[in-house]
């Protein structure tokens, strides 16, 4: 699916002394099989923005387009199924007595048959590497396990766009890498992925395009290489290192991901 946001504006508590203009005309899009990374400082509007992607928040101005169709003309339930949103700290919303029941909740509400529900739950739990937890209570799991179960609950709806709001914060490095692998797997099967993170090192490893938000506006959008080399204050360690070398006259191009950067730097060491 191609999801497009055009000139989205959002104001919290309008007309009060606490009015906050959280989004000031944001436009971007994500296509099938693409990972769009959204970065930006605390309070820059990332969470507000992603909640417009399935119209959980209504824009004060602008449009959301789903395959070029105005999202407000779709049924809310259909929109929420097609655009799956994983909130920041999604584990706070776990509620069922077992992991299996929790993940089955959304597909059951879609009115699917029991066999189909079973397949979807199994598949989603396998995707996040949590099949072994199916009979456990979600409340007696570690934070990292709960996060996977919450993500499985959204995957079980079979979304065409998966939106993840800081999914790796608080996860250990191994769980982070598992999650990045999952994102690549979904992308390779044609799902569109929006990944919000404040960790630029991490987002540099998976994003096909990067958007930097600043004070509710798009500061930059483009390929990781364009965006990071032009915005050093948001650059991952790989880019900062290469940029420092380029600055002294060593032209070694503009690698971003760890592997290609290591290869470029290793070339220098060999002469």
């Amino acid at each position: 699916m191609r999801l497009e946001l055009r000139h989205i504006r959002h104001v919290y508590s309008p007309g009060t002394p606490f009015q906050v203009e959280a989004l000031r005309g944001v436009s971007l899009s994500v296509g099938p099989g693409e990972v769009l990374g959204i970065i930006g400082g605390t309070g820059s509007g990332k969470s507000t923005l992603v909640q417009h992607m399935n119209l959980l928040l209504e824009p004060a101005g602008g449009k959301v387009l789903v395959d070029a169709v105005d999202a407000t003309t779709l049924k809310k339930s259909e929109l929420r199924r097609r655009v799956g949103l994983v909130f920041q700290f999604p584990e706070a919303a776990l509620f069922a007595p077992t992991v299996w029941e929790d993940v089955a909740f959304a597909p059951r509400r879609l009115g699917l048959e029991e066999a189909e529900i079973g397949d979807r739950v199994r598949e989603s739990l396998a995707l996040v590497g949590a099949d072994h937890l199916k009979d456990r209570s979600p409340f007696a799991l570690s934070g990292g396990e709960q996060r996977r179960v919450a993500i499985a609950g959204v995957l079980a709806m079979g979304p065409e766009v998966l939106v993840l709001d800081e999914p790796t914060s608080g996860l250990d490095p191994a769980s982070r890498q598992d999650l990045l692998r999952l994102i690549r797997t979904l992308r390779d099967t044609g799902t569109s992925v929006v990944l919000v993170s404040h960790d630029t090192d991490e987002i540099a490893e998976v994003a096909d395009r990067i958007c930097i938000l600043e004070k509710g506006e798009v500061r930059a959008i483009g390929s990781p290489s364009e965006v990071f080399y032009a915005n050093p204050d948001f650059a991952p360690a790989t880019v900062s290192t290469v940029a420092a070398l380029n600055e002294t006259g060593w032209d070694i191009g503009h690698p971003v991901r760890f592997r290609e950067t290591l290869r470029a730097l290793a070339g220098l060491m060999e002469g």
């Binding site: 360690a237 420092a244 060593w250 760890f258 290591l262 730097l265 290793a266 060491m269």
Partner: peptide
């Protein structure tokens, strides 16, 4: 962390660089 992984991938002493500039200098 990525900076130390780069350093050790290049065969440099892993504990040295604290900033990307440190690492760049070491490589040069």
């Amino acid at each position: 962390p990525p900076l130390l992984r780069l350093a050790s991938g290049l065969g440099l002493e892993a504990k040295k660089p604290r900033t990307p500039e440190d690492l760049a200098r070491e490589i040069q």
